[in-house]
Design a protein around this nucleic acid. Structure first.
Lengths: 236, 236
DNA sequence: ATCAAAAACTGATATATATCATTTTTTTGC
DNA sequence: GCAAAAAAATGATATATATCAGTTTTTGAT
Protein backbone atom coordinates (compact mmCIF):
# COMPACT_ATOMS: atom_id res chain seq x y z
CA UNK A 1 0.00 0.00 0.00
CA UNK A 2 1.24 3.37 -1.00
CA UNK A 3 2.46 5.76 1.64
CA UNK A 4 0.96 9.21 1.32
CA UNK A 5 3.20 11.93 2.69
CA UNK A 6 1.66 14.79 4.65
CA UNK A 7 0.27 17.04 2.00
CA UNK A 8 -1.01 20.56 1.47
CA UNK A 9 -3.08 21.46 -1.56
CA UNK A 10 -0.43 23.99 -2.45
CA UNK A 11 1.83 21.14 -3.52
CA UNK A 12 -0.63 19.86 -6.07
CA UNK A 13 0.54 22.15 -8.83
CA UNK A 14 -1.75 22.90 -11.72
CA UNK A 15 -5.08 23.21 -9.97
CA UNK A 16 -3.69 25.03 -7.00
CA UNK A 17 -2.24 27.52 -9.44
CA UNK A 18 -5.46 28.07 -11.32
CA UNK A 19 -8.35 27.27 -9.03
CA UNK A 20 -7.38 27.59 -5.42
CA UNK A 21 -4.46 29.99 -5.44
CA UNK A 22 -6.60 33.10 -5.16
CA UNK A 23 -8.55 31.97 -2.14
CA UNK A 24 -8.01 33.96 1.05
CA UNK A 25 -6.37 32.20 3.98
CA UNK A 26 -9.69 31.37 5.67
CA UNK A 27 -11.31 29.99 2.56
CA UNK A 28 -8.23 28.01 1.70
CA UNK A 29 -8.17 26.38 5.11
CA UNK A 30 -11.89 25.65 5.03
CA UNK A 31 -11.46 23.78 1.79
CA UNK A 32 -8.15 22.18 2.66
CA UNK A 33 -9.45 20.73 5.92
CA UNK A 34 -12.84 19.61 4.69
CA UNK A 35 -11.47 17.48 1.88
CA UNK A 36 -11.64 13.70 1.99
CA UNK A 37 -8.72 11.72 0.58
CA UNK A 38 -9.22 8.38 -1.16
CA UNK A 39 -6.82 5.86 -2.62
CA UNK A 40 -7.65 3.93 -5.78
CA UNK A 41 -5.82 1.07 -7.41
CA UNK A 42 -5.37 0.91 -11.16
CA UNK A 43 -8.63 0.31 -13.06
CA UNK A 44 -11.00 1.33 -10.32
CA UNK A 45 -14.11 3.31 -11.13
CA UNK A 46 -14.29 6.74 -9.52
CA UNK A 47 -17.79 7.65 -10.67
CA UNK A 48 -20.25 6.51 -13.27
CA UNK A 49 -22.22 8.26 -15.99
CA UNK A 50 -25.75 8.78 -14.71
CA UNK A 51 -24.69 8.77 -11.06
CA UNK A 52 -25.42 11.60 -8.65
CA UNK A 53 -22.59 13.99 -7.83
CA UNK A 54 -21.57 14.29 -4.20
CA UNK A 55 -18.48 16.42 -4.43
CA UNK A 56 -15.73 17.72 -6.65
CA UNK A 57 -12.81 15.39 -7.28
CA UNK A 58 -9.24 16.64 -7.47
CA UNK A 59 -6.37 14.35 -8.39
CA UNK A 60 -3.51 14.43 -5.92
CA UNK A 61 -1.50 11.76 -7.65
CA UNK A 62 -2.10 9.45 -10.60
CA UNK A 63 -4.18 9.53 -13.79
CA UNK A 64 -7.85 9.09 -14.53
CA UNK A 65 -9.61 8.52 -17.83
CA UNK A 66 -12.87 10.40 -18.32
CA UNK A 67 -15.09 8.58 -20.77
CA UNK A 68 -18.55 8.09 -22.20
CA UNK A 69 -20.09 4.70 -22.93
CA UNK A 70 -21.67 4.17 -26.31
CA UNK A 71 -24.50 1.73 -26.90
CA UNK A 72 -22.67 -1.57 -27.45
CA UNK A 73 -19.78 -1.50 -25.05
CA UNK A 74 -17.84 1.05 -27.01
CA UNK A 75 -16.22 3.65 -24.83
CA UNK A 76 -14.88 7.01 -25.83
CA UNK A 77 -12.33 8.79 -23.69
CA UNK A 78 -13.09 12.51 -23.67
CA UNK A 79 -9.97 13.38 -21.72
CA UNK A 80 -7.33 12.06 -19.37
CA UNK A 81 -7.18 13.97 -16.10
CA UNK A 82 -3.79 14.40 -14.46
CA UNK A 83 -2.39 15.50 -11.13
CA UNK A 84 -4.02 18.65 -9.85
CA UNK A 85 -6.97 18.51 -12.23
CA UNK A 86 -10.63 18.66 -11.29
CA UNK A 87 -13.29 16.13 -12.21
CA UNK A 88 -17.03 16.06 -11.81
CA UNK A 89 -17.31 19.80 -11.54
CA UNK A 90 -19.93 20.09 -14.25
CA UNK A 91 -22.34 17.75 -12.49
CA UNK A 92 -21.93 19.59 -9.19
CA UNK A 93 -22.58 22.95 -10.77
CA UNK A 94 -25.61 21.86 -12.74
CA UNK A 95 -27.10 19.44 -10.25
CA UNK A 96 -27.50 16.98 -13.11
CA UNK A 97 -26.19 13.39 -13.01
CA UNK A 98 -22.67 12.79 -14.26
CA UNK A 99 -22.52 13.02 -18.06
CA UNK A 100 -19.32 10.94 -18.11
CA UNK A 101 -17.65 8.13 -16.20
CA UNK A 102 -14.21 8.19 -14.59
CA UNK A 103 -11.80 5.32 -13.93
CA UNK A 104 -8.18 5.26 -12.83
CA UNK A 105 -5.54 4.15 -15.33
CA UNK A 106 -2.85 3.80 -12.64
CA UNK A 107 -2.80 3.80 -8.85
CA UNK A 108 -4.30 7.12 -7.91
CA UNK A 109 -5.00 9.30 -4.89
CA UNK A 110 -7.95 11.66 -5.11
CA UNK A 111 -9.18 14.45 -2.86
CA UNK A 112 -12.90 15.02 -2.63
CA UNK A 113 -14.21 18.45 -1.79
CA UNK A 114 -17.73 18.23 -0.39
CA UNK A 115 -20.45 19.84 -2.44
CA UNK A 116 -21.49 22.35 0.21
CA UNK A 117 -17.93 23.54 0.79
CA UNK A 118 -17.43 23.95 -2.93
CA UNK A 119 -20.56 26.07 -3.17
CA UNK A 120 -19.51 28.22 -0.25
CA UNK A 121 -16.29 28.96 -2.07
CA UNK A 122 -18.04 29.86 -5.30
CA UNK A 123 -20.32 32.26 -3.43
CA UNK A 124 -17.56 33.91 -1.46
CA UNK A 125 -14.86 34.34 -4.06
CA UNK A 126 -15.29 35.92 -7.51
CA UNK A 127 -11.72 34.89 -8.33
CA UNK A 128 -12.59 31.31 -7.60
CA UNK A 129 -15.43 31.57 -10.07
CA UNK A 130 -13.17 33.13 -12.63
CA UNK A 131 -10.75 30.27 -12.21
CA UNK A 132 -13.52 27.75 -12.79
CA UNK A 133 -14.50 29.63 -15.92
CA UNK A 134 -10.94 29.47 -17.20
CA UNK A 135 -10.79 25.75 -16.43
CA UNK A 136 -14.02 25.05 -18.29
CA UNK A 137 -12.91 27.25 -21.19
CA UNK A 138 -9.77 25.22 -21.59
CA UNK A 139 -11.70 21.97 -21.58
CA UNK A 140 -14.03 23.40 -24.18
CA UNK A 141 -11.24 24.62 -26.42
CA UNK A 142 -9.69 21.20 -26.22
CA UNK A 143 -13.01 19.58 -27.05
CA UNK A 144 -13.42 21.80 -30.11
CA UNK A 145 -10.01 20.81 -31.42
CA UNK A 146 -10.73 17.14 -30.86
CA UNK A 147 -14.07 17.38 -32.67
CA UNK A 148 -12.22 18.74 -35.68
CA UNK A 149 -9.72 15.90 -35.53
CA UNK A 150 -12.32 13.19 -35.10
CA UNK A 151 -14.39 14.59 -37.93
CA UNK A 152 -11.68 15.20 -40.49
CA UNK A 153 -8.37 13.57 -39.68
CA UNK A 154 -7.16 10.04 -40.24
CA UNK A 155 -6.26 7.64 -37.47
CA UNK A 156 -2.57 8.09 -38.20
CA UNK A 157 -2.84 11.84 -37.69
CA UNK A 158 -4.97 11.58 -34.60
CA UNK A 159 -2.52 9.09 -33.19
CA UNK A 160 0.40 11.44 -33.81
CA UNK A 161 -1.51 14.25 -32.15
CA UNK A 162 -2.39 12.15 -29.15
CA UNK A 163 1.07 10.70 -28.66
CA UNK A 164 2.55 14.17 -28.54
CA UNK A 165 -0.19 15.49 -26.32
CA UNK A 166 0.01 12.58 -23.91
CA UNK A 167 3.75 12.55 -23.63
CA UNK A 168 3.76 16.27 -23.04
CA UNK A 169 1.04 16.22 -20.43
CA UNK A 170 2.32 13.09 -18.68
CA UNK A 171 5.80 14.59 -18.46
CA UNK A 172 5.39 18.35 -18.55
CA UNK A 173 8.82 19.11 -17.07
CA UNK A 174 11.15 16.98 -19.13
CA UNK A 175 9.30 17.00 -22.48
CA UNK A 176 10.64 16.46 -25.12
CA UNK A 177 12.98 13.69 -24.10
CA UNK A 178 13.23 10.39 -25.85
CA UNK A 179 13.89 8.41 -22.70
CA UNK A 180 10.34 9.02 -21.55
CA UNK A 181 7.57 6.68 -22.46
CA UNK A 182 3.84 6.33 -22.36
CA UNK A 183 2.35 3.53 -20.35
CA UNK A 184 -1.21 3.23 -21.57
CA UNK A 185 -3.11 0.20 -22.86
CA UNK A 186 -3.76 -0.05 -26.58
CA UNK A 187 -7.43 -0.30 -25.74
CA UNK A 188 -7.43 3.03 -23.93
CA UNK A 189 -5.31 4.69 -26.58
CA UNK A 190 -7.71 3.47 -29.27
CA UNK A 191 -10.67 4.80 -27.32
CA UNK A 192 -8.94 8.12 -26.97
CA UNK A 193 -8.30 8.60 -30.67
CA UNK A 194 -11.55 6.97 -31.74
CA UNK A 195 -10.37 3.88 -33.57
CA UNK A 196 -10.38 0.13 -33.13
CA UNK A 197 -7.46 -1.27 -31.20
CA UNK A 198 -6.39 -3.41 -34.17
CA UNK A 199 -6.09 -0.39 -36.44
CA UNK A 200 -4.24 1.49 -33.75
CA UNK A 201 -1.81 -1.40 -33.25
CA UNK A 202 -1.14 -1.65 -36.96
CA UNK A 203 -0.34 2.04 -37.24
CA UNK A 204 1.86 1.91 -34.15
CA UNK A 205 3.69 -0.90 -35.93
CA UNK A 206 4.16 1.22 -39.05
CA UNK A 207 5.48 4.12 -37.00
CA UNK A 208 7.88 1.79 -35.26
CA UNK A 209 9.16 0.52 -38.62
CA UNK A 210 9.62 4.11 -39.73
CA UNK A 211 11.69 4.85 -36.65
CA UNK A 212 9.25 7.41 -35.32
CA UNK A 213 8.50 5.57 -32.11
CA UNK A 214 9.91 2.68 -30.12
CA UNK A 215 7.83 -0.05 -28.52
CA UNK A 216 8.77 -2.20 -25.52
CA UNK A 217 5.75 -4.21 -24.45
CA UNK A 218 3.09 -1.73 -23.49
CA UNK A 219 5.53 1.12 -23.37
CA UNK A 220 5.72 3.57 -26.25
CA UNK A 221 8.79 5.78 -26.69
CA UNK A 222 8.71 8.86 -28.87
CA UNK A 223 11.86 8.84 -30.98
CA UNK A 224 11.19 11.38 -33.72
CA UNK A 225 9.26 14.22 -32.26
CA UNK A 226 9.44 16.37 -35.39
CA UNK A 227 8.06 13.70 -37.68
CA UNK A 228 5.10 13.23 -35.37
CA UNK A 229 4.48 16.95 -35.48
CA UNK A 230 4.42 16.83 -39.27
CA UNK A 231 2.05 13.88 -39.37
CA UNK A 232 -0.27 15.55 -36.88
CA UNK A 233 -0.57 18.80 -38.76
CA UNK A 234 -0.84 17.73 -42.39
CA UNK A 235 -4.03 16.47 -43.88
CA UNK A 236 -2.41 14.20 -46.47
CA UNK B 1 -33.29 46.17 -45.45
CA UNK B 2 -34.75 44.63 -42.38
CA UNK B 3 -36.58 46.79 -39.91
CA UNK B 4 -35.44 46.25 -36.34
CA UNK B 5 -38.13 47.01 -33.78
CA UNK B 6 -37.16 48.79 -30.57
CA UNK B 7 -35.73 46.11 -28.40
CA UNK B 8 -34.84 45.32 -24.82
CA UNK B 9 -32.49 42.50 -23.94
CA UNK B 10 -35.29 41.00 -21.90
CA UNK B 11 -37.03 40.02 -25.11
CA UNK B 12 -34.10 37.94 -26.31
CA UNK B 13 -35.15 34.81 -24.47
CA UNK B 14 -32.60 32.15 -23.73
CA UNK B 15 -29.60 34.24 -22.80
CA UNK B 16 -31.55 36.79 -20.88
CA UNK B 17 -32.97 33.94 -18.88
CA UNK B 18 -29.62 32.39 -18.09
CA UNK B 19 -27.00 35.07 -18.26
CA UNK B 20 -28.48 38.48 -17.71
CA UNK B 21 -31.63 37.86 -15.72
CA UNK B 22 -29.93 38.00 -12.33
CA UNK B 23 -28.28 41.34 -12.91
CA UNK B 24 -29.45 44.18 -10.69
CA UNK B 25 -31.24 47.10 -12.32
CA UNK B 26 -28.12 49.25 -12.52
CA UNK B 27 -25.96 46.54 -14.00
CA UNK B 28 -28.62 45.58 -16.45
CA UNK B 29 -28.95 49.13 -17.69
CA UNK B 30 -25.21 49.56 -17.93
CA UNK B 31 -24.95 46.56 -20.18
CA UNK B 32 -28.16 47.21 -22.10
CA UNK B 33 -27.14 50.75 -23.01
CA UNK B 34 -23.52 50.06 -23.81
CA UNK B 35 -24.22 47.40 -26.38
CA UNK B 36 -23.63 48.00 -30.07
CA UNK B 37 -26.07 46.51 -32.57
CA UNK B 38 -24.96 45.22 -35.95
CA UNK B 39 -26.82 43.80 -38.92
CA UNK B 40 -25.35 41.03 -41.03
CA UNK B 41 -26.60 39.54 -44.27
CA UNK B 42 -26.52 35.81 -44.85
CA UNK B 43 -22.99 34.40 -45.20
CA UNK B 44 -21.15 37.26 -43.59
CA UNK B 45 -18.22 36.60 -41.32
CA UNK B 46 -18.68 37.81 -37.76
CA UNK B 47 -15.21 36.97 -36.51
CA UNK B 48 -12.29 34.82 -37.56
CA UNK B 49 -10.20 32.16 -35.84
CA UNK B 50 -6.96 33.78 -34.74
CA UNK B 51 -8.49 37.27 -34.51
CA UNK B 52 -8.43 39.37 -31.38
CA UNK B 53 -11.60 39.55 -29.33
CA UNK B 54 -13.13 42.99 -28.80
CA UNK B 55 -16.41 42.14 -27.14
CA UNK B 56 -18.96 39.47 -26.46
CA UNK B 57 -21.47 38.78 -29.20
CA UNK B 58 -25.11 38.01 -28.47
CA UNK B 59 -27.54 37.05 -31.21
CA UNK B 60 -30.68 39.13 -31.26
CA UNK B 61 -32.09 37.51 -34.33
CA UNK B 62 -30.84 34.95 -36.84
CA UNK B 63 -28.40 32.05 -36.81
CA UNK B 64 -24.63 31.80 -36.83
CA UNK B 65 -22.38 28.84 -37.49
CA UNK B 66 -19.33 28.51 -35.25
CA UNK B 67 -16.61 26.59 -37.01
CA UNK B 68 -12.96 25.64 -37.16
CA UNK B 69 -10.94 25.52 -40.36
CA UNK B 70 -8.85 22.46 -41.05
CA UNK B 71 -5.69 22.55 -43.12
CA UNK B 72 -7.00 22.12 -46.67
CA UNK B 73 -10.18 24.16 -46.74
CA UNK B 74 -12.12 21.67 -44.69
CA UNK B 75 -14.34 23.32 -42.13
CA UNK B 76 -15.95 21.74 -39.10
CA UNK B 77 -18.97 23.35 -37.48
CA UNK B 78 -18.67 23.00 -33.71
CA UNK B 79 -22.11 24.45 -33.07
CA UNK B 80 -24.85 26.61 -34.49
CA UNK B 81 -25.67 29.58 -32.28
CA UNK B 82 -29.27 30.76 -32.15
CA UNK B 83 -31.22 33.74 -30.89
CA UNK B 84 -30.17 34.81 -27.43
CA UNK B 85 -26.94 32.83 -27.43
CA UNK B 86 -23.49 34.17 -26.69
CA UNK B 87 -20.44 33.89 -28.91
CA UNK B 88 -16.81 34.74 -28.46
CA UNK B 89 -17.02 34.61 -24.70
CA UNK B 90 -14.13 32.18 -24.33
CA UNK B 91 -11.69 34.48 -26.13
CA UNK B 92 -12.74 37.48 -24.05
CA UNK B 93 -12.31 35.59 -20.80
CA UNK B 94 -8.93 34.13 -21.67
CA UNK B 95 -7.50 37.06 -23.60
CA UNK B 96 -6.43 34.58 -26.28
CA UNK B 97 -7.32 34.95 -29.96
CA UNK B 98 -10.53 33.38 -31.16
CA UNK B 99 -10.21 29.59 -31.35
CA UNK B 100 -13.10 29.40 -33.82
CA UNK B 101 -14.65 31.43 -36.63
CA UNK B 102 -18.25 32.61 -36.87
CA UNK B 103 -20.36 33.31 -39.95
CA UNK B 104 -24.06 33.96 -40.39
CA UNK B 105 -26.19 31.33 -42.09
CA UNK B 106 -29.15 33.69 -42.51
CA UNK B 107 -29.71 37.43 -42.12
CA UNK B 108 -28.77 38.13 -38.55
CA UNK B 109 -28.75 40.94 -35.99
CA UNK B 110 -26.09 40.79 -33.32
CA UNK B 111 -25.50 42.82 -30.17
CA UNK B 112 -21.94 43.42 -29.08
CA UNK B 113 -21.18 44.00 -25.43
CA UNK B 114 -17.85 45.80 -25.04
CA UNK B 115 -15.11 43.92 -23.30
CA UNK B 116 -14.75 46.35 -20.42
CA UNK B 117 -18.46 46.36 -19.66
CA UNK B 118 -18.51 42.60 -19.71
CA UNK B 119 -15.65 42.46 -17.23
CA UNK B 120 -17.32 44.98 -14.96
CA UNK B 121 -20.33 42.71 -14.83
CA UNK B 122 -18.28 39.61 -14.05
CA UNK B 123 -16.56 41.43 -11.21
CA UNK B 124 -19.73 42.84 -9.73
CA UNK B 125 -22.09 39.90 -9.92
CA UNK B 126 -21.40 36.36 -8.67
CA UNK B 127 -24.68 35.25 -10.22
CA UNK B 128 -23.50 36.52 -13.57
CA UNK B 129 -20.40 34.39 -13.20
CA UNK B 130 -22.47 31.40 -12.21
CA UNK B 131 -24.58 31.87 -15.30
CA UNK B 132 -21.50 31.94 -17.50
CA UNK B 133 -20.33 28.75 -15.84
CA UNK B 134 -23.64 27.09 -16.61
CA UNK B 135 -23.47 28.28 -20.20
CA UNK B 136 -19.95 26.89 -20.67
CA UNK B 137 -20.92 23.65 -18.94
CA UNK B 138 -23.73 23.13 -21.40
CA UNK B 139 -21.45 23.75 -24.35
CA UNK B 140 -18.98 21.30 -22.91
CA UNK B 141 -21.57 18.60 -22.32
CA UNK B 142 -22.72 19.02 -25.87
CA UNK B 143 -19.15 18.81 -27.11
CA UNK B 144 -18.61 15.56 -25.19
CA UNK B 145 -21.66 13.99 -26.76
CA UNK B 146 -20.57 15.08 -30.21
CA UNK B 147 -17.09 13.66 -29.72
CA UNK B 148 -18.66 10.30 -28.95
CA UNK B 149 -20.79 10.49 -32.08
CA UNK B 150 -17.95 11.57 -34.33
CA UNK B 151 -15.70 8.85 -32.97
CA UNK B 152 -18.09 5.92 -33.00
CA UNK B 153 -21.26 6.53 -34.97
CA UNK B 154 -21.93 6.27 -38.68
CA UNK B 155 -22.89 9.17 -40.89
CA UNK B 156 -26.47 7.94 -41.02
CA UNK B 157 -26.75 8.04 -37.24
CA UNK B 158 -25.03 11.37 -36.88
CA UNK B 159 -27.33 12.76 -39.53
CA UNK B 160 -30.41 11.50 -37.69
CA UNK B 161 -29.12 13.06 -34.47
CA UNK B 162 -28.38 16.37 -36.11
CA UNK B 163 -31.67 16.60 -37.97
CA UNK B 164 -33.58 16.12 -34.75
CA UNK B 165 -31.36 18.49 -32.85
CA UNK B 166 -31.52 21.18 -35.49
CA UNK B 167 -35.25 21.01 -36.01
CA UNK B 168 -35.78 21.15 -32.28
CA UNK B 169 -33.44 24.05 -31.69
CA UNK B 170 -34.55 25.99 -34.76
CA UNK B 171 -38.19 25.60 -33.74
CA UNK B 172 -38.26 25.13 -29.99
CA UNK B 173 -41.91 26.08 -29.57
CA UNK B 174 -43.64 24.03 -32.21
CA UNK B 175 -41.36 20.93 -32.25
CA UNK B 176 -42.26 18.24 -33.24
CA UNK B 177 -44.36 19.31 -36.19
CA UNK B 178 -43.93 17.91 -39.65
CA UNK B 179 -44.77 21.18 -41.40
CA UNK B 180 -41.54 22.69 -40.19
CA UNK B 181 -38.39 22.42 -42.22
CA UNK B 182 -34.70 23.01 -42.01
CA UNK B 183 -33.16 25.50 -44.36
CA UNK B 184 -29.47 24.77 -44.30
CA UNK B 185 -27.05 24.11 -47.14
CA UNK B 186 -25.85 20.54 -47.70
CA UNK B 187 -22.35 21.85 -47.34
CA UNK B 188 -23.02 23.22 -43.86
CA UNK B 189 -24.94 20.14 -42.79
CA UNK B 190 -22.07 17.93 -43.94
CA UNK B 191 -19.59 20.05 -42.03
CA UNK B 192 -21.77 19.80 -38.95
CA UNK B 193 -21.94 16.00 -38.97
CA UNK B 194 -18.40 15.56 -40.22
CA UNK B 195 -18.91 13.97 -43.63
CA UNK B 196 -18.47 14.85 -47.27
CA UNK B 197 -21.45 16.57 -48.85
CA UNK B 198 -21.79 13.76 -51.41
CA UNK B 199 -22.18 11.13 -48.72
CA UNK B 200 -24.60 13.33 -46.83
CA UNK B 201 -26.68 13.87 -49.97
CA UNK B 202 -26.81 10.15 -50.69
CA UNK B 203 -28.03 9.35 -47.20
CA UNK B 204 -30.58 12.14 -47.31
CA UNK B 205 -31.80 10.50 -50.52
CA UNK B 206 -32.10 7.13 -48.81
CA UNK B 207 -34.03 8.63 -45.94
CA UNK B 208 -36.32 10.34 -48.38
CA UNK B 209 -36.98 7.02 -50.15
CA UNK B 210 -37.74 5.44 -46.79
CA UNK B 211 -40.30 8.14 -46.05
CA UNK B 212 -38.39 9.44 -43.05
CA UNK B 213 -37.85 12.92 -44.43
CA UNK B 214 -39.13 15.06 -47.27
CA UNK B 215 -36.96 17.21 -49.52
CA UNK B 216 -38.01 20.31 -51.46
CA UNK B 217 -34.96 21.96 -52.92
CA UNK B 218 -32.77 22.94 -50.01
CA UNK B 219 -35.55 22.42 -47.52
CA UNK B 220 -35.67 19.27 -45.41
CA UNK B 221 -38.90 18.21 -43.70
CA UNK B 222 -38.91 15.71 -40.88
CA UNK B 223 -41.74 13.24 -41.56
CA UNK B 224 -41.02 10.31 -39.24
CA UNK B 225 -39.68 11.65 -36.05
CA UNK B 226 -39.69 8.28 -34.27
CA UNK B 227 -37.68 6.51 -36.93
CA UNK B 228 -35.03 9.20 -36.74
CA UNK B 229 -34.88 8.71 -32.99
CA UNK B 230 -34.26 5.01 -33.49
CA UNK B 231 -31.57 5.54 -36.09
CA UNK B 232 -29.84 8.09 -33.87
CA UNK B 233 -29.70 5.88 -30.81
CA UNK B 234 -28.81 2.46 -32.23
CA UNK B 235 -25.32 1.49 -33.19
CA UNK B 236 -26.34 -1.01 -35.88
C1' DA C 1 -38.95 37.04 -65.06
C1' DT C 2 -34.37 35.96 -66.53
C1' DC C 3 -29.92 34.26 -66.31
C1' DA C 4 -25.55 33.33 -64.35
C1' DA C 5 -23.60 31.28 -60.49
C1' DA C 6 -24.04 28.21 -56.84
C1' DA C 7 -25.74 24.27 -55.00
C1' DA C 8 -27.59 19.74 -55.36
C1' DC C 9 -27.31 15.47 -57.20
C1' DT C 10 -25.46 11.07 -59.59
C1' DG C 11 -22.10 7.53 -60.83
C1' DA C 12 -17.72 5.18 -60.70
C1' DT C 13 -13.78 4.12 -58.14
C1' DA C 14 -10.34 3.91 -54.45
C1' DT C 15 -9.20 3.30 -49.75
C1' DA C 16 -9.11 3.78 -44.79
C1' DT C 17 -10.80 1.43 -41.22
C1' DA C 18 -13.83 -1.93 -38.78
C1' DT C 19 -14.65 -6.59 -37.86
C1' DC C 20 -13.75 -11.38 -37.00
C1' DA C 21 -10.72 -15.11 -35.91
C1' DT C 22 -6.45 -16.76 -34.15
C1' DT C 23 -1.72 -16.73 -32.29
C1' DT C 24 1.87 -14.81 -29.62
C1' DT C 25 3.52 -12.01 -25.99
C1' DT C 26 3.15 -9.46 -21.80
C1' DT C 27 1.24 -8.41 -17.54
C1' DT C 28 -0.49 -9.38 -13.16
C1' DG C 29 -1.67 -11.63 -8.86
C1' DC C 30 -0.11 -15.05 -5.73
C1' DG D 1 9.19 -16.76 -10.24
C1' DC D 2 5.23 -19.08 -12.05
C1' DA D 3 0.80 -19.79 -14.00
C1' DA D 4 -3.43 -17.84 -15.44
C1' DA D 5 -5.42 -14.05 -17.46
C1' DA D 6 -5.12 -10.08 -20.18
C1' DA D 7 -3.27 -7.62 -23.76
C1' DA D 8 -0.88 -7.18 -28.04
C1' DA D 9 -0.12 -8.54 -32.50
C1' DT D 10 -1.24 -10.53 -37.11
C1' DG D 11 -4.00 -11.95 -41.17
C1' DA D 12 -8.03 -12.05 -44.06
C1' DT D 13 -12.16 -9.90 -45.38
C1' DA D 14 -16.05 -6.65 -45.67
C1' DT D 15 -17.73 -2.07 -45.99
C1' DA D 16 -18.57 2.76 -45.06
C1' DT D 17 -17.12 6.77 -46.77
C1' DA D 18 -14.06 9.93 -49.43
C1' DT D 19 -12.79 11.48 -53.79
C1' DC D 20 -13.14 12.76 -58.55
C1' DA D 21 -15.71 14.02 -62.51
C1' DG D 22 -19.62 15.19 -64.48
C1' DT D 23 -24.90 16.64 -65.04
C1' DT D 24 -29.02 18.71 -63.45
C1' DT D 25 -31.56 21.73 -60.54
C1' DT D 26 -32.13 25.56 -57.56
C1' DT D 27 -31.08 29.94 -55.90
C1' DG D 28 -30.55 34.72 -55.76
C1' DA D 29 -29.34 39.06 -57.79
C1' DT D 30 -30.60 42.22 -61.33
Amino acid sequence: MKQIPPHSCKECGKTYETIFSHLGEDDFNLFSESKVVRQYKNREIVFNEGGKAQGVYCIREGKVKIYKNGVDGIEHITRIALQGELMGIKAILSGHPYSVSAATIEDTVICIIPKNVFFQLTLRSPQFNQAIIVFLSNLLENAEARMLSLAHKHVRQRLAESLLFLLQSFNPVTFPNSKLYLNITRHDLANLIGSSSETLIRILGEMKDEGIIGIKGRKIFILDHQKLDKIASFIH
